[in-house]
């Protein structure tokens, strides 16, 4: 009697139970395999689209670089979704031979194009949309590259403006036209800042992403521009003035012209009037005597 019931237990309970476990185990392996394969297929599809774009046209244009940049961003997101992808030999091969070399090339192209578009940015020509797209796609490719490119653009503009102002010290009559040029460069920086503020990314916007990387403390491009211009001009101005001689005398003779030029150019410009005092302070040595 016992054997019969044990036999029955074996057939009707133990066997089905182990079969169920076996099936569950196999099902999970099939599932893991297909999810890895699906992510690999997405990667391969993206890379083959990249290759066909490259075959169509070898030289990069702005439009083509934006297309390629969006493929690279999708590749990165796909890679982040499934870390196992990088252990697949084919993926490693495609990454090394196709994706990464092209990413470097596209990254450089977009950084250079963005710099060019920004340095001779002109509201009337309205390349705002292109600048916005280039900024966003550069950010998508590499956050560091985005921040360092914007930083370089602002620093270049600062260097040019500081030089323009320093040159006026030996012939102060040229100060008004020079200062106007600096204000227009400053307003380009401000307009770029506006574009960055409008471009939503992740939690904030492109402006916030830039400012949060500024050391020692967060700094907007406009503030960076004017604070550097003011401190640099103060150094040059004090130097020329204290040296005295014809240059020093001419500076003090034109004290009001200098202050009025700065006030006129900055006070009624909402974007930069908060930096008026900073600029006036840079020529404040004239008032002390």
């Amino acid at each position: 009697y016992l054997d019969m019931s044990y036999q029955r237990l074996q057939n009707e309970v133990l066997e089905p139970h182990s079969k169920a476990q076996k099936l569950q185990n196999v099902l999970s392996k099939v599932h893991q395999t297909s999810s890895l394969l699906r992510d690999a297929l997405v990667y391969i599809h993206l890379v083959s689209r990249m290759q066909s774009l490259l075959e169509e046209q070898t030289t990069l244009t702005t439009e083509r670089s934006l297309q390629l940049a969006s493929i690279h961003t999708q590749l990165r997101l796909n890679m982040e979704k499934n870390a196992n992808l990088t252990s697949l030999r084919l993926i490693k091969k495609l990454e090394a031979e196709v994706a990464l070399p092209n990413k470097k090339e596209v990254l450089n192209f977009i950084a250079v194009t963005l710099s060019k578009q920004c340095t001779n940015y002109d509201k009337s020509r309205d390349n705002t949309e292109t600048v916005a797209k280039l900024m966003k796609s550069l950010y998508g490719l590499s956050k560091q590259e985005y921040v360092s490119t914007i930083h370089k653009i602002v620093l270049t503009s600062i260097a040019l403006s500081a030089q323009t102002l320093a040159k006026t010290l030996n012939s102060i009559k040229t100060f008004p036209t020079a200062f106007e040029e600096v204000v227009s460069r400053g307003s380009i920086i401000y307009q770029l800042e506006e574009i960055m503020r409008k471009e939503k990314v992740e939690k904030f916007n492109l402006l916030n992403e830039f400012m949060s990387q500024m050391r020692p403390k967060p700094l907007s491009p406009t503030k960076l521009f004017w604070s550097r211009i003011a401190s640099n001009f103060k150094k040059e101005f004090d130097l020329s003035y204290t040296r005295g001689g014809p240059v020093g005398k001419s500076l003090s003779r034109h004290e009001t012209m200098i202050a009025d030029t700065i006030k006129q150019a900055m006070s009624n410009n909402a974007a930069i009037n908060s930096y008026l005092d900073m600029m006036l302070a840079s020529v404040s040595i004239l008032q002390n005597d």
Partner: peptide, 26 residues
């Protein structure tokens, strides 16, 4: 059986031809 190895071999062999072959096999 290891899913990772299976996919790796499948893709690597398919890639001998060209990338479209890999897509159809996959």
């Amino acid at each position: 059986f290891v899913p990772q190895a299976f996919v790796d071999i499948l893709l690597f062999n398919a890639a001998r031809q060209d990338i479209n072959q890999v897509q159809s096999v996959t």
